[in-house]
Computed example of a mutant assay.
Amino acid sequence: MSHHSERAARWRAHVEQWRRSGQTQAAYSAEHGLNKKSLGYWVRQGRAVAARKSDAFLTLVAARPVGVTSPLQAAGVLSLRSPSGWCLEFATLPSASWLSEVLAHQAP
């Protein structure tokens, strides 16, 4: 294994350990003697690779804000998130036909 691939594998392992730790990047880096900017770089690299390999093009997230108890109060809370990191948030719900069209255009 080359030095570069060993280094990348070591950082991928740290990224996975950081994700499971529940710590902030700064806390994990300090605990393990890592440069937090380097950890952040490898986290972003992992996201970019995952976005390129992902079969899921968009993730729909319907959320009810904290303190909202009625479905009527929660109406219009919708986010579309892509694997590459962009997010669209809607103040009012879009029509089902429009949403269907957007999702259809995300297929390869």
Rank of each mutant, 00 (worst) to 15 (best):
T24M: 10
S5M: 11
Y28C: 06
T59A: 11
G85I: 08
Q25A: 11
H4W: 15
V49R: 07
P83A: 09
M1W: 09
A91K: 11
A51P: 00
M1E: 12
S95N: 02
S5P: 09
A74K: 02
A75D: 09
A13C: 07
A50N: 01
E16G: 03
A62V: 15
A51M: 00
L88V: 01
A48G: 11
A74D: 04
D55H: 04
S95Y: 05
W18P: 00
L72F: 02
H105I: 13
A56G: 00
L72M: 04
A8N: 06
F57W: 06
H4S: 15
A48L: 10
R19A: 02
S5T: 15
K37Q: 12
S5Q: 12
R20H: 06
K36M: 14
S97G: 08
S82R: 14
T69E: 06
A50M: 01
A75T: 10
S97I: 03
A30Y: 09
H105R: 14
A63N: 14
V43H: 13
A63P: 13
E31P: 05
A30E: 13
Q23R: 03
P83V: 06
A9H: 08
A75V: 08
S82V: 12
E6G: 08
H105V: 13
K53L: 01
P71A: 00
L58N: 05
K37E: 11
L34C: 06
G85A: 08
G46Q: 12
A9Q: 09
N35M: 07
G76D: 07
V66P: 07
V77W: 13
W11G: 01
S29H: 09
S70A: 01
T92R: 12
D55R: 02
R64W: 11
L93Y: 09
E31A: 14
G22L: 03
Q106F: 14
S95E: 10
A96Y: 13
V102K: 03
A50S: 01
A96N: 11
E31N: 10
S84W: 08
L93G: 11
S100L: 07
G46V: 12
W98R: 04
L39H: 14
K53G: 02
L103M: 07
A13P: 03
V77M: 15
R52A: 00
T69V: 07
Y28F: 15
L103Y: 02
P94A: 04
G22S: 02
T24P: 07
E6N: 08
F90I: 05
A96G: 13
S97M: 02
P65W: 03
S95R: 08
E31Q: 13
Q17H: 09
A26V: 10
L60A: 15
V68Y: 11
N35R: 08
R12A: 07
R10T: 08
R7C: 07
L72E: 04
S100W: 08
T59Y: 15
A50G: 01
R81S: 15
Q23S: 02
G22W: 02
R20F: 07
S97W: 04
S29A: 11
E31V: 09
A91C: 10
N35Y: 09
R44K: 15
L72K: 04
K37P: 14
H4K: 14
E101L: 05
E16M: 05
S21F: 01
M1P: 13
G33D: 06
H4R: 12
